[in-house]
Simulated scan of single mutants.
Amino acid sequence: MTDSEQDALTAVERAMVAVRRSQTRRSLGRLAPPDGEDRPVDPTLFGVLDAVEERDGACSVMDVAAALGVDQPRASRLVLRAADEGWLTRAPDPTDARRTLLALTSEGRDRLDRTHRLREQVFARAMADWPAADRVEFARLLTAFVEGFGREVGSAPRPAARDSSRVEERGI
């Protein structure tokens, strides 16, 4: 390995530590629009909505627990809170009556879409002085890195759960 390759690995490791510290402080989770009554929204509930969105119709409480890295009782409480907010529905799984399937309500979908748009605006401002080609390349490389890292650590996330073709269309 050349010195420049080692320097690049060191830079990636340091950047990932900085991202992890930022996530520990839930900075991304705090980037959620307030509800209609301007109440602050618990960022953890957006993790629930993100997990349900990612599974797209085949999501259980155990799936939410795995996505959030919490135990089943904690996931159940979070799912119940999201359902009480009107963001999720719960229905018995037709193939296994012991299991409950979760789905976003139209209000939950709206809340999630508004949050995604707000976060994308923050990311766009963070990269505002980048050339468009660099933003597109960064999106491609970051997505590839997340997928490769997930395979390496045994938890391949699905960063492209949303329509990733919009990256090139919007120049993000």
Rank of each mutant, 00 (worst) to 15 (best):
E152Q: 07
T143F: 04
S60W: 06
T24F: 14
A128D: 11
S60I: 09
L78P: 00
D134E: 15
R26Y: 07
R170W: 07
D110A: 13
V167K: 05
R55G: 04
R77M: 04
P34E: 03
E168K: 11
V122P: 07
G150T: 00
A160Y: 12
D38L: 12
R26T: 03
P40Q: 07
R111N: 00
E147A: 10
V52F: 03
T100A: 00
F145A: 05
G57C: 00
R111W: 02
S60A: 08
V122G: 05
V122D: 15
L102S: 06
V136K: 00
T2M: 03
R21G: 02
D134W: 12
T44C: 11
P159C: 01
G29C: 00
R151A: 13
V48S: 05
V52Q: 07
V70P: 01
D84M: 06
L88Q: 01
A128F: 11
M127A: 13
G148N: 14
Q72F: 07
V122H: 09
V70E: 09
G148T: 10
D71C: 01
Q6F: 15
S164T: 14
V52M: 05
A126G: 13
E137K: 08
A91M: 06
S4N: 13
R140T: 13
G150V: 04
R55S: 03
P159M: 03
A51C: 06
R170Y: 11
L9G: 11
A144Q: 09
L101I: 02
G148V: 02
P33A: 06
R99Y: 10
G57T: 09
D96K: 00
T95G: 10
A144V: 08
A139E: 03
Q72L: 08
A15I: 02
S76G: 04
L104M: 04
G36S: 08
P131R: 07
A67N: 03
A128P: 04
A126S: 11
E120G: 14
R114E: 13
R21Q: 14
V12P: 02
L31N: 10
V12L: 05
M1H: 12
Q72M: 06
C59R: 00
R111D: 05
W87V: 02
L31C: 08
W87T: 04
A124E: 08
P131E: 15
R162G: 04
A103G: 06
A51G: 02
R151K: 04
D113N: 14
V17F: 00
A132W: 11
V70D: 09
A156E: 15
L45F: 04
S22I: 05
A65F: 01
R98H: 13
P157S: 12
D3F: 06
Q72P: 03
T100L: 06
G154W: 00
C59V: 02
R14K: 09
R14S: 11
L80H: 09
D71P: 01
S22M: 15
